[in-house]
Design a protein around this nucleic acid. Structure first.
Length: 413
RNA sequence: GGCCCGUUCGUCUAGUGGUUAGGACACUGGCCUCUCACGCCGGUAACAGGGGUUCGAAUCCCCUACGGGUCACCA
């Protein structure tokens, strides 16, 4: 365990898919760690053995890597289980926690009074029990980078569970301890966990831990929970575009389009505000990132291996915003072509084109084909477009031709 | 309900006492054009409401409303 360093952490749950809200938090933690030149840690929350999904942790790490978030420092909370239990025992011995024999059903009828059971009564009770921490004796004050100083009255904090009946630590308890054991100094997380803060502080207070952890509770993205990262990637959004979007939205950025490296130089956590996920904006940013991607790399995203194809793909960003929208258009260029109209003209044109010499310029090819086929107007342009692109509409042929001219043999076969 | 947080066009954002309240995405009108688009030039559209403070308030103060979150042996 690193001592005396500022540590940032991202703690995804192994119980569900990563959504864009999670990635946003991960990104912000990572960027802040880089800015502070400090360590960034990923801590997989797998304390709830029943809810864990087999392989989900690996999937999460794989996705994070796609977004250039390093997965070199990874720990699992379940590995600390014996420490969690030891510390719970300490709280029990110090009278800061107590055994509770209530069941979820009995709690619906009356409040838990196990706090006041005598030692003897506890020892003689053979029923299963969980361990609850005692509510604090003082009000708790905590500071948040965004919210400032907050006071929580002691009555508002209940005797919450720290060890479940099966003696596994509750998530909140495990997190509070792991932040302590891991010497974490800055926690950036979602606002919905704001009310966990006094409880975590209280746990550490009882244990005599006095290092102050800085909290930053970010206003969350509305609808984030319904937008899984996996599905956005499957729809053909580029990781770099998603990163750009998440950093840009609810923020004030010097430019609209940027990459992670640029963002590190100016990112300011204090400017983040509440946002609603807007797919249109993401689409726009994705288009811009497609244009910025190197031709060859882009071609690979599309399942091709030639630089030229990447270049054509960029031409299509004028009418498509995702990899998945562009791919069928490229595939159509090389597919077998069966036009629904101007079929005779198409056949004539194809024959002429197959015999035509190679032309460097599209205008020259066009002039040659027009002269040899005798076609003009729509009867020429529509089948020509179909012959070259497999579609009756699309970008200017003049913009596409330079990138496909070397594949003409295959295209018009 | 208690506690916490928030509220500028549909969305994101500029604005920190004096602006025709600006920009971007989306939507939309025109031009361009072999098509759909792109591009260019336009357009619609916002300070949640009410009280103060002030010569003057989106901006400062108070109240209300609305929205979000949290109060689990879920995270």
């Amino acid at each position: 365990m690193t001592k005396g360093k500022v540590l940032f952490r991202f703690a995804p749950q192994a119980t569900r898919d990563l959504h864009i809200g999670d990635l946003r938090i991960a990104l912000f933690n990572y960027i802040c760690a880089l800015q502070a030149k400090d360590t960034f840690l990923i801590r997989i929350d797998d304390t709830d053995a029943e809810a864990n999904i087999e392989g989900k942790d690996q999937e999460i790490l794989k996705i994070l890597s796609l977004f250039h978030i390093p997965v070199t420092n990874v720990t699992y909370q379940s590995h600390n289980r014996k420490f969690h239990q030891q510390l719970a025992t300490k709280l029990l011995m110090d009278q800061h926690a107590f055994s509770c024999f209530c069941t979820p059903e009995s709690l619906k009828k009356h409040d838990c009074t196990c706090e006041h059971l005598s030692d003897e009564a506890v020892l003689n009770n053979e029923s299963p029990f969980c361990v609850r921490i005692k509510r604090p004796q003082h009000d708790i004050t905590c500071t948040d980078r965004f919210k400032g100083t907050m006071h929580f009255k002691k009555e508002t904090i209940d005797n919450f569970v720290i060890l479940r009946v099966d003696k596994s630590p509750s998530t909140l308890f495990a997190a509070a301890l792991d932040d302590m054991l891991g010497d974490i100094s800055m926690i950036i997380r979602e606002e919905e966990q704001l009310n966990h803060t006094p409880k975590e502080i209280m746990i550490r207070d009882y244990l005599g831990y006095d290092k102050e952890i800085t909290y930053a509770h970010l206003p969350s993205i509305c609808d984030a929970h319904t937008t899984s990262l996996k599905s956005l990637l499957e729809e053909g959004f580029l990781p770099s575009a998603i990163t750009n979007y998440l950093i840009m939205t609810g923020n004030e950025t010097p430019t609209e389009i940027f990459d992670l490296q640029e963002a590190i130089s100016w990112f300011d956590l204090d400017k983040i505000s509440t946002v609603t996920f807007d797919i249109n904006k993401l689409r726009h940013i994705n288009r811009e990132h497609i244009k910025k991607t190197a031709d060859l790399e882009l071609a690979k995203f599309l399942g091709y291996s030639s630089q030229d194809i990447g270049a054509v793909a960029k031409v299509y960003t004028e009418e498509a915003s995702t990899i998945n929208e562009i791919k069928p258009k490229l595939d159509a260029i090389f597919a077998k072509k069966e036009p629904l109209e101007f079929q005779e003209e198409f056949a004539t044109l194809r024959t002429v084109a197959q015999k035509a010499p190679f032309f460097k310029e599209f205008d020259d090819l066009k002039a040659h084909l027009a002269a040899k086929s005798g076609l003009k107007g729509k009867e020429f342009s529509t089948p020509l477009r179909f012959l070259l692109t497999g579609s009756d509409k699309g970008p200017n042929l003049g913009d596409i031709y330079p990138h496909i001219k070397n594949y003409l043999g295959e295209i018009i076969k």
